[in-house]
């Protein structure tokens, strides 16, 4: 097991180091998130103030998922293009760590994006608005929990899709239904906190999602991965 965590950490660090040097993906994801938020702002422009606040609580989740999808598109690109994948499969390591390493790296990227995204959402939708804003603590907790699930499930399906033809088209089709429960729970937590309702249930569901997807992907990845 310790070998698993060590390998995971090494692989995640490799991805993050590559990203820190090129910054391609972070910039693209950040700009994409910003542009989507601007579009969301105009798309809801006709709604009344209270409605817009409610809509924003859902839209921010949509933006997070779509931004994650952008990251996932490139997730296994280097491995496939440069033949690294075969080397990883030949190496005497726990193969589940390949998935876990990708998931950890993507979680870190998502966190980075959200640090920018959340304040901007506040600025665009809640600043100066009389409507009740969601609790910042709840939103951050929900996003932190959801990142793990998005990265875990996303890396799993991205790995499957990376072996297929037309993987760019395939990934969203595989990814979005799989993360639907996450979006439902995340929106329920966000909207619930704005309306002063208890949010333990949705937060718990996010946790359960992470656990279920984590165990399934960790257990299955070794059997599923192909050269």
């Amino acid at each position: 097991m310790s070998g698993f965590w060590r390998t995971t950490w090494l692989l995640a660090r490799k991805d993050l180091l590559l990203e820190a040097r090129s910054r391609e993906l972070t910039l693209a994801m950040g700009l994409f998130a910003l542009a989507s938020l601007v579009l969301a702002q105009y798309a809801t422009g006709a709604a009344a103030e209270a409605d817009r606040a409610l809509l924003a609580s859902g839209l921010v989740w949509l933006v997070v998922l779509f931004t994650a999808m952008l990251g996932l598109q490139r997730s296994f690109a280097a491995e496939r293009d440069e033949g690294l994948f075969d080397a990883l499969l030949l190496a005497p390591l726990d193969r589940s760590a390949i998935w876990a390493g990708k998931a950890v790296a993507l979680t870190a990227l998502l966190l980075l994006i959200e640090i920018v995204l959340v304040p901007l959402t506040w600025l665009f939708f809640f600043e100066g608005s009389t409507a009740a804003a969601p609790s910042l603590v709840t939103l951050c907790a929900a996003l932190a929990l959801a990142n793990l699930g998005v990265a875990g499930a996303g890396s799993f399906v991205a790995s499957l899709a990376s072996a297929a033809r037309q993987r760019e088209v395939l990934l969203p089709v595989l990814f979005l239904p799989a993360v639907t429960p996450l979006l439902i729970a995340g929106v329920a937590a966000t909207v619930g906190s704005a309306q002063g309702e208890p949010v333990t249930q949705p937060l718990l569901l996010l946790l359960v999602y992470d656990a279920v997807v984590g165990v399934l992907a960790w257990g299955a990845y070794d059997h599923v991965i192909t050269e």
Binding site: V157, L174, V224
Partner: peptide, 18 residues
């Protein structure tokens, strides 16, 4: 098979979420 396997987890999760 890997993708179908993920569906097993999705059923209870969707039920809870909905």
């Amino acid at each position: 098979a890997g993708y179908a396997l993920l569906g097993i987890g999705l059923v209870p999760l969707s039920f809870l979420a909905v």
